[in-house]
Amino acid sequence: MAEAPTAPQDHARNGHRKEGLNGSAAATGAESGHGEKPGSGGAGLAGLAGKALGAITGALGNRIPVADLDERDPDFIRERLPGLWLLSSLYFRGEVRGLGNIPERGPVLMVGNHSGGNVTPDTHVFTLAFCAYFGVERRFYQLAHNLVLSMPGLGILRKFGTVAASPDNMRKALESDAALLVYPGGDYEVHRPSWEGNRVDFGGRKGFIRQALRHDVPLVPVVSIGGQQTALFLSRGEALARALALDKMFRLKVLPISLAVPWGLNVGDMLGHVPLPAKITIEVLPPIHLREEFGADPDVDEVYDHVLRLMQETLDALASERRYPVIG
């Protein structure tokens, strides 16, 4: 769903830079190691291609709703809980452990591994579990990819507390004492091949650690398994995405290829798919207080390795509990 942004930027709409999606891609890509130089889209065929790219980017940028944390609607969420409960309990046979590890109050940054393509069952299961456990009254936001929020029909997510991934939105959420869920791996991780399903892969994105340090909030790792068994994910299609300049236009570094219901061969997963009823298991780990555990000025790389190791070990343990694919 989302990758944690890294640095404060000039904000126009929605906490993103004025150049819209393109600018955000540059900002996150730079720290992730997957990005391109800003503004390089106008090179090559020059003029015409550059203008077309700019127009598409601008149009999509305008579709991203203005960030307003107040759009989260507790009553709306409460009324949707039964539907989420049905989906989570009956279809995905969800199991969420360790919610008691999340601090009862105060801001907290929850960091999850992400699975399931553009239909992310782990998010549904966790949202239900969190809202049922702490009550819809507790502020809970999720950072999402720009494209998710600009898709027609997905405006409903804003009522659940989903906001575009940007440093400004992150700051606002944490300053409002909210619990914030980020998926640093974002689109890169969510489309990993199914045979890498039991691997936590943030693609080197460490922005979430810098943000946790900046706002001095605890990190709570959230590890899930099962999402990558909801379809047969074949490839991220990174080369294809680069060839089609999707990374510049939509911050998309991947154009995933999968076998999924009902499409069969599914390229892009833009319309989503019907997920197979894979059992989703989620484990919430104890909070990591960065300055208490790593000193006054923690080394980001060291923290990153620590968080990733913890999550990978938990994911391995969850994987060892599963006896069959999909069934769990």
Partner: peptide, 16 residues
Amino acid sequence: GVAGAGILGYVSERLS
């Protein structure tokens, strides 16, 4: 129950 949850609320209450 959950007031205002509609048919899904009814179904989830029955099933739970």
